[in-house]
């Protein structure tokens, strides 16, 4: 095995970090990991925690699989990848239960569902099995950041328009039982859009992001 000596942050390596943010975004370009993007973007906080959890799982599973890539028998490689991802997910779940109990209750089954997040298996199969540990870590950070970025943008709009809050703080004023008891925008007769809280709006929000993304980034448009 001969790898050319390359600077830690050479142009190629930087591309691993920045590509998934825009040109090769896992959600808006590859359309992976949509399931969790719908489920946990009602509020900003679970979306942020989910992004961090995915970042952790993706970086370490990429690293571990990359370190083992020359030892893994190819016939059982998918099972080995699953084993690595599943045990990292259990680890995250256990740590959340001990140190961030409320968050772990909020994320409930979705932590377990990180295992089925296509982004993770996709990166392991497509990248970590063929590249060295350092590149794999960068690729993991890049893809998790690309995923998390979209998740947080979607959650931002859904929480703001759906419940008038951000991270639980009442941004648009307080909604009382009557207009007289309300403050801020609610005093002017503004109403929260309950539809934003339902899954279809997550899909539509992601769709709008894809639209904006493609109109800014023309090379993504297929003929």
């Amino acid at each position: 095995m001969s790898e050319e000596k390359e600077a830690l942050f050479s142009k190629n390596n930087r591309a691993l970090l920045t590509d998934p943010l825009s040109d090769n975004n896992p959600i808006t370009v590859q359309v992976l990991g949509i399931c969790s993007a719908l489920a946990i973007t009602v509020q900003l906080k679970p979306a942020i925690v989910m992004s961090i959890a995915v970042l952790f799982v993706l970086v370490f599973s990429n690293l571990i699989v990359s370190l083992l890539r020359n030892m893994i028998p190819s016939r059982i490689r998918i099972i080995v990848q699953l084993l690595v991802v599943a045990s990292l997910v259990i680890l995250v779940d256990q740590v959340l239960k001990a140190y961030a109990y409320d968050v772990s209750k909020e994320l409930s089954v979705f932590v377990g569902l990180i295992i089925t997040n296509c982004i993770i298996m996709g990166r392991l199969e497509a990248f970590a099995l063929a590249n060295g540990p350092w590149k794999s870590v960068l690729d993991g950070i890049g893809n998790a950041a690309g995923y998390g970025f979209i998740l947080i943008v979607v959650a931002f709009f859904r929480e703001l328009l759906g419940s008038g809050k951000l991270l639980g703080y009442e941004i648009l004023g307080h909604k009382g039982k009557t207009i007289a008891e309300s403050t801020g925008l609610y005093q002017l007769g503004y109403e929260n859009n309950g539809f934003m809280l339902l899954s279809p709006m997550a899909l539509i929000t992601v769709g709008i992001i894809i639209w904006v993304h493609r109109s800014k980034n023309r090379k993504l448009i297929e003929n």
Binding site: I76, I79, V80, V84
Partner: peptide
């Protein structure tokens, strides 16, 4: 080799968890 790899892997993961 496949069996050996699987066994070692599972034992390590189980112990860590």
């Amino acid at each position: 080799y496949t069996f050996l790899f699987a066994i070692i892997m599972v034992v390590i993961v189980a112990a860590a968890l």
